[in-house]
Design a binder for these strands. Structure first.
Lengths: 258, 258
DNA sequence: ACAAAAGTGTTGAGAGTACACCCATGC
DNA sequence: GCATGGGTGTACTCTCAACACTTTTGT
């Protein structure tokens, strides 16, 4: 947690710089070596975990805000963040004055009436994917911790964040063949075995190793290079790279139907 | 436009019932007899057209708010409204105090300082499809008119609403084979010719009449019935109906990939 | 019998799926 | 020469796209 004075300023003056009632929550998935994790922020005062989130500055686009918010909990700056859904049920976040008073006490601040943080909040959901071994999570302004959790060992989350994770994962899996989501997970040049492991782990199922490269090359996602990597005692595998030109072209035209 | 007192109350007290900084804008597409239109609200004071929109009550879910807002400009209550994207660039709506003062003057109201309507607004985009011959558009609280426009005769819209329409239409077209979007356009039992015309018009291109029914039946969207309709001097066509069970099943499982 | 609309069948090309064996390398 | 991991090819099925003629019905 940051300094008390910084926090106090945020609570008192935040509405001058941030828009009230609207937040961004980010489902950051982390892959490494056959493992899929997700980044969760812990809030002692609230007694639970959430997706890392934050408010939108009045000068920012949504995408920029999402990037900044993620950078604040990960120090990552070039993620491929994608908006997937906006959540706005009136009971999704129930911060009453009472809760806020309690919260203020917990974090050792005087209770400030009519804070801009009170009241319901609509949240724009973003997701991204990164290599969790390269990330040192850090707590945000309001949160006490930020850590990687295995995707199938997620504790029950606060508010509607369970649903957010579920929707984000579903979107991620659906879009894995159409957007360069996995690009940040792999080195610029990678082997089939590596990307195969990524896709199997993300989708949570086995993919036939013989059909897999055919499909990806056919879709234009990856390109075979004329280089091999030396991996010691075994046959040297060919290297591949993402072919982002084709991705973006496909994005513009959209799905076409006869 | 509604009564001045109602409007004044909305401007002064709206923030008690509605959330500031967040709106919903709806791209309502209308089909009838080979024509595709879109519903636009006219604002004299702003000198232009927008998608019909509104604010979210503090007690509503987003979906409910979208339905209410649409009902306010169409009297339609059972649309299949779908959230497609949230728009939040800081310069997308530039209502400064000055603009608002001018607007107040135009509509014949005293200028109210620090209105909750000032300031930037993030907007959640929804779209839907209906039969425009069944709809009598009506102006909303703030707008002066509401009318159907042919899809290729849309005037340049205010703010970023051109982009909103473009994105909505793209989403609509992409999802036409996977969600029951067109269901409200056709009677419960319809002929191939009818649904064929709908799909051609919505997608803006010719669809081979011989392949078309094969595809729709294969996807499980429609089901052939054992009935015909008498259409006078011609061969009686078979009737079909939407098979919503399969739709919803497909929705839950999501796109699965090998 | 004719005008108007409905309906249908085949073929070739390309993508998806399932399946099992050989290759290269370092020790 | 063997252990380890890398890499590929074929056959079947299914979907997609392109294409034009026959059937029904009322007048």
């Amino acid at each position: 947690m940051n300094s008390i004075s910084e926090l106090q300023d945020f609570i008192i003056n935040g509405h001058k710089h941030y828009m009230p009632h609207i937040s961004i929550d980010a489902a950051i998935f982390g892959y490494h070596d056959h493992q899929l994790k997700i980044l969760l922020s812990g809030y002692k005062a609230l007694g639970g975990y959430c997706l890392p989130g934050g408010y939108i500055k009045r000068t920012e686009t949504l995408d920029k805000a999402a990037n900044r918010i993620v950078a604040e909990s990960t120090s990552l700056t070039d993620l491929y963040l994608k908006q997937y859904k906006t959540f706005g049920d009136p009971d999704r976040i129930k911060w009453s004055e009472l809760d806020f008073e309690k919260f203020s006490k917990e974090i050792g601040l005087p209770y400030i009436k009519d804070s801009w943080l009170i009241d319901q909040t609509i949240s724009v959901g973003y997701y991204a994917l990164t290599d969790f071994s390269l990330v040192t999570p850090k707590a945000g302004l309001l949160s006490d911790s930020c850590d990687w959790f295995n995707i199938d060992e997620i504790p029950p989350l606060l508010y509607d964040h369970d649903q957010m994770v579920k929707d984000a994962l579903h979107t991620l899996r659906t879009q894995l063949y159409y957007y360069p989501i996995a690009e940040k997970l792999l080195p610029a040049k990678f082997t089939l075995t590596e990307i195969h492991a990524v896709y199997e782990t993300l989708l949570g199922k086995k993919l036939d190793i013989r059909n897999f490269p055919k499909k990806l090359v056919f879709l234009g996602l990856i390109k075979k290079l004329n280089e091999k990597r030396n991996i010691g005692p075994h046959r040297a595998p060919f290297l591949y790279k993402f072919d982002l030109k084709k991705y973006t072209k496909a994005l513009e035209t959209g799905t076409t139907l006869t």
